[in-house]
Nucleic acid binder design. Structure first.
Lengths: 216, 216
DNA sequence: ATTTGGTTTAACCATATGGTCAAAATTAGA
DNA sequence: TCTAATTTTGACCATATGGTTAAACCAAAT
């Protein structure tokens, strides 16, 4: 709580060091798989300090999870608000937004999915807490449908499809990388080029009058 | 091992009862989250019996995981072999195959993803053991491209997309169900209708000369 | 009925793990 | 420098959990 009045000269606060370490371990191992000792080791501190700053594993986890959950919804408001942005820009913003996010945090989706599965009841509270409002994206797609830009379909399903196409290849990297691409480097390259090809795939599926790749 | 010579009058062998219970618990909780006691309770037997039939948690888990892994690859060979089957039939077979599989085993994908993440090195062995060969599906798509049935793209990427579009809505059900559909019943209905709409989405994305929904 | 083999159980063990605590170390202020 | 507060640590505790074992149970064969 009152961490600001302590040693100000250190570059980054002890809490932050702990949070970073905990994030790393929790993301990879999940709540059950994570060990407080491992988090302490990762942070380079004594295990008791974890309980000194955050009371329990549950509390520490809650911090991490909340924080992680907020970052999962694409921040494409800027694109949505631009009046002249066509629907392809919106799609492109979503796909690239997720691709960039997942490059930095590849374990994020699996982490969120798992911990929500562990206690599905808390999902409503999390959404409210994070202030996630899909209505804006939904209505953007609806407008595009009314304008005849994209094919008519459930806009929420389109959101599911876009996010799924972004997330799925990342969370199945070890499996599909080996199964389909044999060497991991090839799969990394695939994930790179995919930013573009995923956009094309989606636009071919929904955009009316969508021509060739070169049109993009 | 020699379970066949024991009490034959019981309908289903004790091993199978244990395997069913273990499958249920491991699928929901994962390896770390699962408790041997919970599996024993689920099977309605003493905990020591788990060790009597399967030596350790690790071994028991291995049985379950192997078995689960085999069922994840779509068995669409029948459709592939039919000479007159066009590419839409193949896509439809994949989508419906996965949809039906996931209706019965909704936790399967997450289970596999998690446990592969826990030890990515074993994935190659698993694939070989299960005898999964994606080449047939790959070449089916390649043929379709050469015939001009579908747009030219990396066939492996198409596989990733199809599976992803099938699996993602299921593994994110608690999250996206609440976020986009508010009530779970609405999401169940969405998953139902989606079998068809997912096919349409994919075909619009890849099939050349794909007309309207009614064409399906 | 008795023996024999496999099956099942309750009690127990060793260890790992989340958590606590009192003492030591460190820092800040007087 | 001395004191008070905060931070850090090693040692420790209680419990949960995977695993073991010896005894009990039970069905089938003799």
């Amino acid at each position: 709580m009152d961490s600001l009045q302590k040693t100000e000269n250190q570059e980054v606060s002890q809490e932050q060091i702990i949070l970073d370490a905990a994030s790393k371990v929790f993301m990879r191992k999940g709540y059950e798989g994570a060990r407080m000792q491992e988090i302490a080791d990762e942070a380079g501190i004594n295990k008791a300090l974890l309980h000194y700053y955050f009371r329990s594993k549950e509390l520490l986890f809650h911090h991490i999870f909340r924080q992680s959950f907020r970052s999962f919804w694409p921040s494409i408001e800027p694109v949505l608000y631009k009046a002249d942005s066509d629907i392809r820009s919106v799609i492109k913003a979503m796909v690239y937004g997720y691709a960039n996010l997942l490059e930095k945090m590849p374990y994020l989706p699996n982490f969120i999915i798992n911990e929500i599965n562990r206690d599905p009841a808390k999902v409503a509270g999390l959404i409210q807490d994070a202030g996630i409002k899909p209505e804006m994206v939904v209505s953007a797609f609806e407008r595009a449908m009314n304008k005849g830009e994209i094919v008519r379909m459930d806009p929420r399903e389109l959101i599911v499809n876009i996010i799924g196409l972004c997330v799925f290849p990342v969370i199945t990297r070890p499996l599909l990388g080996t199964l389909l691409y044999h060497e991991k480097h090839a799969y990394e390259q695939f994930l790179q080029s995919r930013k573009e090809t995923a956009c094309e795939f989606i636009c071919r599926a929904v955009c009316l009058n969508f021509a060739a790749k070169s049109d993009f």
